[in-house]
Design a protein around this nucleic acid. Structure first.
Lengths: 198, 198
DNA sequence: CTACTTTTGCTAACAGTGTTAACTTTTTAA
DNA sequence: TTAAAAAGTTAACACTGTTAGCAAAAGTAG
């Protein structure tokens, strides 16, 4: 059976498309990604790309998933560093922040780009995984919150604080010096934790 | 002197460009704005648009300014409804939230689009005005914060919380029902206010 | 080994995009 | 009336995502 080999080869081309796209994303930003550039980089003609991905958006969506995977990995690793939920939240917040700026281009694809296409957001499993990680931590806080709905509200708040700080920072919209940004983060997270039980 | 009349006419064309662009933004979203559509709508040929605006981005930037103007107006009006700074902050937060969803397309141009082009952010006066409004309120809280730097940190935090909640909501990334979103906002702002003095 | 079918990849085109160069018409001023 | 300046035009350049139609290669069956 040669179908096996063909499938493997197909997977290889698919991967080379993604890695060519990644190269462009990292060097020129996600806005510079174009199907023609990718086709050039992988040594194939234009329509070949379309036999592996339905559209350009489908390629970019792959990076959203990949970004959340990396974020989740980092968050999960951070979580094990302490057994105290409050400390876990603080550590996870820092990890989130550091990921956003270390993988800036990924983060922008995960959120900046995300604004227009938001219907599929809930269908990306990796985003749900991120939620599960944080929700689990919040649930372990003592005294425990009343119901699951309240936990979800707190998760929503927590994520919003993190993303808000990240986005406002990335846009350089406030004149806050970079050495103070960690302080702002800790300040906001501390306020969140303090207020978590009412 | 007919130069007066010509200047007035030029201003009219400029305004008609902006209002044509606004029409497209409101009906089809900001991503659908194109110079050709604008030229068509105003009854002129393509390059005429370029005699009034340097680029497409310059046109979109006009909406960022306009968006912040509207936001500032609403925030400033809200501010007068109470004399207590803490209550002012709560009201301003709600006004911010309501603006974001009432003028969704504007908000997305102010932030979603903003991510890529961020160098000019500090050069837009309207953004500074927004900061001044909030900073002033934070400064009036008793007991007053130690130094101006700390006030800026708190402003940064406050804005981040607001934008974070807005963005996460707009993307429908959490499954929080809409009637709960106001609760999340109040919860987060309450946490911020509680934590403001340490 | 030939003949047929399927897959694979190509060129070329369509319908857009932002932007600009070059030319024509109109208006203004001397 | 004529020369200079302004306004507006068409046409093109260099891109973009996407797809239709065709040629070549590879696999399969007789």
């Amino acid at each position: 059976m040669a179908t096996e080999k063909r499938l493997k080869q197909k997977e290889e081309v698919r991967n080379s498309i993604l890695s060519a796209a990644r190269e462009i994303v990292l060097n020129e930003g996600w806005q510079a990604v174009s199907i023609r550039k990718i086709a050039d980089a992988i040594g194939y003609s234009l329509p070949v790309v379309y036999t592996h991905f339905e559209s350009k958006d489908a390629i970019l969506e792959e990076f959203v998933k990949l970004g959340f995977s990396m974020l989740n990995e980092s968050i999960a690793a951070t979580k094990t560093k302490s057994a105290v939920p409050e400390q876990q939240l603080r550590d996870m917040a820092i990890a989130y922040f550091e990921f956003a700026f270390a993988k800036r281009e990924y983060y922008q694809m995960m959120f900046g780009l995300g604004m227009p296409s938001c219907e599929r957001a809930k269908q990306i499993a990796e985003i749900g995984d991120f939620g599960a990680l944080v929700v689990d931590t919040i649930q372990n806080i003592h005294p425990p919150l009343n119901d699951a709905e309240q936990v979800r509200l707190k998760f929503h708040t927590f994520w919003s604080i993190l993303h808000g700080l990240t986005a406002i920072n990335m846009m350089n919209m406030t004149a806050t010096p970079s050495e103070m940004q960690q302080l702002v983060l800790q300040d906001a997270v501390q306020g969140f934790i303090k207020n978590i039980n009412n």
